[in-house]
Design a protein around this nucleic acid. Structure first.
Lengths: 354, 354
DNA sequence: CAAGGAAATAAAAACGTTTCTATGGAGTGT
DNA sequence: ACACTCCATAGAAACGTTTTTATTTCCTTG
């Protein structure tokens, strides 16, 4: 019994189910059933098989399993850009349950480009992922829908469609924005600007509507130029900041499309020598980890991202295990909460008199 | 008459290579060769096949291809945590070339946990990834090495091993840290603290050595308590900050293990009412996107992360295409550069006694 | 014009499983 | 003891390709 004998990890041939069958002295279907834990095999036989498998260091080939059983144990995840701190949290949530279920994640960055998203989706379908989670925009386009119609289970996160009955996990956009506007109004702000995310996303529409409602209800300034179609991300924030702060009658508060966007706006404010919140209040969306830093201290609308990712994955798993026909469109809404920090404050009399 | 002759496009059944062969009136191997672009098929035949494939909307099954050809066109990527902003940039770089090569990414978070990393690696090997890129620590452990020895091509990023001849892509740690120390020394700092990353990483050892060399050469304070074994991440930064700033004779400058770590330290400084850089200078490592924000303005050592990720993937691709035996250990070193922003400044006399 | 050979194509084997079907043997009721 | 079920197992087909081997076609060439 030398050491090398115990683990004969030859570079050459892989240990297959056939080897295990031979070692255990049974047929290969018995091995398959035994290792799958099917109760059709006698306990004694099963143990024999398991022993043999261990002795040989057998590991089933997921590839072959997938080909035959049509379950790849892989799920695709589409995000706009992992480099944007909002997404990794969702991804971690998805991963939490995927890992538990023995699934692997195929992560794809779409960069918000529809063409690219289509390619990635097609590739995922080709690879026969068991399902996909979409955190990327472009869920309404006909071409995307054509692919989604091919029968892959999927769950949308933060993108709801009116036209289709999707499984959906999202945050309560209405409540979040409403709380934000009310908070600012209480502080005395009347000119509150609103930055939209990418137009293709439904969350944007909901938030915008919520903003308009709240502004109307609270009788705040509802000038059309207080709304800017923009994007997520710091650069977009720079643009938005420059836009609003360059106005002749600039808003005293800005609700950004998300936290990164807010950081961009704060950046512009700092460059122009404006103090936050004395001269300008800013509210973000998502509550990324950085937001609570002393140097940032961003008031923002918290989204339980990791939990939402997990919920999306759970829903997907359920969808996958269900028979092909029986899809129950489930829509899970997560509560949002306004986290008040130091990027918002009372309107200074001097800065704008009404 | 023949029953199975003309099948209209059924919803359920997948279009296989057999269908294409029948449609084109050729054998299946011809289809395979034609679509693979092998010049063994006559141009006329190839066109006929391509036409047929298009007519049927044929898409080859990557699963079946992988099973037979033993190339999965998938590469595994191991990171400690995608939620740490340093990693996504590397990942994007890897993705850039993976996509170009038609490969899919399997992204795994190890959370810096060796056990978890081992599981993930084993899973990747089971799935027969064509190769893997490791950005995670724990590359020296015997158990990790046992898996790496199984013949999967791999490239280490930022983790060099002395004991093994790995393919490696890294930044010039020595130059980076040297520049940082010199910069601080020029500003008049003599007590410069140094925060180490996770002990398992080789980059840490290199940086620590570089720090010690520079401190010695410049005849700065080299007290042993100026070095703290720590981790990456904000929380670790809080710990480090509390540790150093709580000393009776605190350092006037701190070189953090990375940018996130530095942010944590800045956070503690702010909480304690210290001004940066008047009372404390802080230097990060990596130059994440956030570092250049006005509110952060972190002096840091820039690493070309995306390029490095791309280079790692390139090296991996080369390794994969090479014959199994011929592995050429290639070590690519990327230059680092000190980006001076506003978290470092001249030593203030008054701050010596606080 | 038959033979030889190269080029193109087709057929068959292989990849490593799961799943469907067949088989043998042990247990029942008559 | 008989047919009859039931259970555990074995055998074979199937998943959809690539690759290896066999066969056909067609062009030379003596």
């Amino acid at each position: 019994m030398t050491k090398n004998e115990s683990k004969p990890q030859q570079q050459g041939r892989r240990v297959t189910i056939v080897d295990v069958a031979r070692e255990a002295g049974v047929g290969i279907s018995t091995v398959s059933n035994a290792l799958a834990g099917k109760d059709i095999v006698r306990l004694k036989t099963r143990n024999k098989v398991i022993k043999a498998a261990e002795r040989l260091g057998y590991r089933a080939s997921p590839l072959a399993q997938a080909l035959r059983s049509r379950r790849t144990m892989a799920i695709g995840v589409l995000v706009a850009d992992v480099a944007n701190p909002s997404y990794p949290d969702f991804v971690r949530g998805i991963e939490d349950v995927a890992l538990r279920e023995g699934c692997t994640l195929l992560l794809c960055n779409t960069d918000g480009d529809e063409e690219r998203q289509l390619e990635q989706m097609q590739s995922l379908i080709d690879r026969q992922v068991d399902g996909m989670v979409l955190l990327s925009p472009h869920c309404e386009s006909d071409r995307v829908r054509e692919l989604l119609g091919k029968g892959v289970p999927y769950v949308l996160v933060q993108r709801r469609s009116e036209r289709y009955d999707d499984n959906y996990v999202g945050g309560d956009n209405e409540a979040g924005i409403r709380a934000a506007v009310e908070h600012l109004a209480e502080l005395g702000h009347r000119r509150i600007a609103f930055v939209c995310g990418p137009a293709a996303s439904s969350a944007v529409a909901e938030r915008l509507a919520a903003y308009r409602n709240a502004v109307k209800r609270l009788k705040l300034d509802h000038a059309e130029d207080l709304v800017l179609a923009n994007d997520y991300g710091i650069d977009a924030g720079h643009v938005a900041g420059a836009h609003f702060l360059g106005m002749k009658n600039p808003p005293t508060a800005i609700i950004a499309s998300n936290d990164m966007n807010a950081l961009g706006i704060l950046d512009v404010a700092a460059e122009r020598g404006l103090s936050v919140p004395q001269d300008l209040s800013v509210i973000g969306y998502d509550d990324i980890a950085l937001a609570r830093l002393e140097r940032i201290n961003l008031t923002t609308i918290r989204l339980p991202k990791r939990e939402m990712g997990a919920a999306a994955a759970e829903a997907l798993m359920e969808l996958i295990s269900k028979e092909a026909g029986a899809r129950l469109p489930r829509r899970t809404l997560f509560p949002t909460s306004l986290v008040v920090r130091k990027s918002t404050g009372p309107l200074k009399r001097s800065s704008r008199e009404r």
